[in-house]
Design a binder for these strands. Structure first.
Length: 354
DNA sequence: TACCCGTGGCT
DNA sequence: TAGCCAAGGGT
């Protein structure tokens, strides 16, 4: 632990740094609306600010309030989330919006413990919304703040086992004054100065208290457990089109890409496994090259099989297979990237021809 | 706890 | 190129 007077002084220094050097992010504009704070926090989970920003703008345009989002069509929300990844976030986003309307009169609760009970709220998001939207002195700990704290205190215990030490360290800096600015100041410091690699320690307003800096090895922190190697899988995706639309299905369940539209595909088999390719819908396919897509826990090599059919045959497929629907080629953006890539690989072709 | 769950940019 | 990394949550 550090001396309380030192913490208090350096905290003021970092807030001053934040006032001059903090990032100008879309969700920081205007008054702090709990809905906007929450929406941004969910989108930013494991996602870069640059990737999330256009999605944030689009969601606010379509659904300006939590009540608007609660009333939205599930498929429309999933389609707007396509490409952002971690699709369970979108499912829980809707669940949460509806819970806020149903159980809280359309207003987010301001207490951290009440927020924690809402779908998609974990320890980080509950603390972040309590702090940023309601200015409560919550102990906000995310990957950025973990990095700053493990360096400040030279916490060598590898994560995630070291999380309790990190929380204790972080708690020492939490105060009522500018409670909402504080975690954002830490995150901006982590992003611009206390970077994962080659941190700019000489520019850091906290360096006087940083044990890792004094020891000359900030890159050691945070220590992390070795990751399991990523297996490789392979499969075949089927593109069935009449030149205007493609055949897609709504993916069931809560697993990979659950709730999203997807192209029909074979099993995704581990290396050495035989891919059971049946000729989907009893159609004849041309084969194209394969493309690569990397998920969180496996890498996929996928062959593209294309069937260009007449308008009548296309309708016939839809009539005979209830689980499938047509997606206009102009709406490819409604698909997760792993499937959008398959269509992109055919973009040089004129699908309407032949 | 360990694992599941996307994507894109950077090195 | 392969690996790392980014405002985590659920089970």
């Amino acid at each position: 632990m550090k001396d309380a007077a030192l913490v208090s002084r350096l905290r003021a220094d970092l807030l001053a740094w934040y006032d001059g050097h903090g990032r100008d992010l879309p969700w920081r504009k205007g008054a702090r609306d709990p809905y906007r704070v929450w929406l941004s926090e969910v989108m930013l989970q494991q996602t870069t600010t640059a990737h999330a920003a256009p999605y944030y703008a689009r969601f606010l345009e379509l659904w300006p309030t939590v009540a608007d989002l609660a009333a939205a069509d599930d498929g429309a929300v999933m389609a707007q989330w396509a490409g952002l990844g971690y699709y369970a976030r979108a499912r829980r986003l809707l669940e949460c919006a509806r819970a806020v309307v149903r159980d809280h009169g359309g207003r987010f609760p301001d207490r951290e413990d009440a927020l924690l009970k809402l779908p998609g709220f974990g320890p980080y998001t509950a603390a972040a919304v309590a702090a940023i939207a309601f200015d409560h002195p919550a102990n906000v700990v995310d990957g950025n703040i973990e990095r700053v704290m493990t360096r400040l205190y030279a916490i060598a215990t590898p994560l995630p086992a070291g999380r309790s030490e990190v929380r204790q360290a972080s708690a020492q800096w939490v105060m009522a004054q500018r409670a909402g600015d504080w975690p954002q100041a830490l995150m901006d410091l982590a992003n611009q100065v206390c970077r994962p690699k080659s941190p700019l320690c000489l520019l850091c307003p906290l360096n006087a208290a940083c044990v890792a800096f004094r020891a000359g090895d900030p890159d050691r922190y945070p220590a992390k457990l070795a990751k399991a190697p990523k297996p490789r899988r392979h499969g075949v995706v089927f593109v069935v089109t009449d030149g205007v639309s493609v055949i897609v299905e709504r993916r069931e369940g809560k697993g990979l890409l659950g709730g999203m539209l997807g192209l029909p595909h074979s099993d995704w088999q581990a290396e050495g496994g035989e891919v059971a390719v049946k000729h989907m819908f009893d159609l004849t396919y041309q084969t194209f090259g394969a493309y690569e897509h990397v998920f969180t826990h496996f890498a996929l090599t996928q062959e593209v099989w294309l069937a260009r059919v007449s308008v009548d045959d296309f309708s016939d497929v839809l009539r005979r297979h209830n689980a499938y629907q047509a997606l206009p080629l102009a709406e490819v953006k409604a698909l997760p990237t792993v499937f959008a890539k398959a269509l992109k690989s055919l973009l040089s072709l004129d699908l309407a021809a032949g």
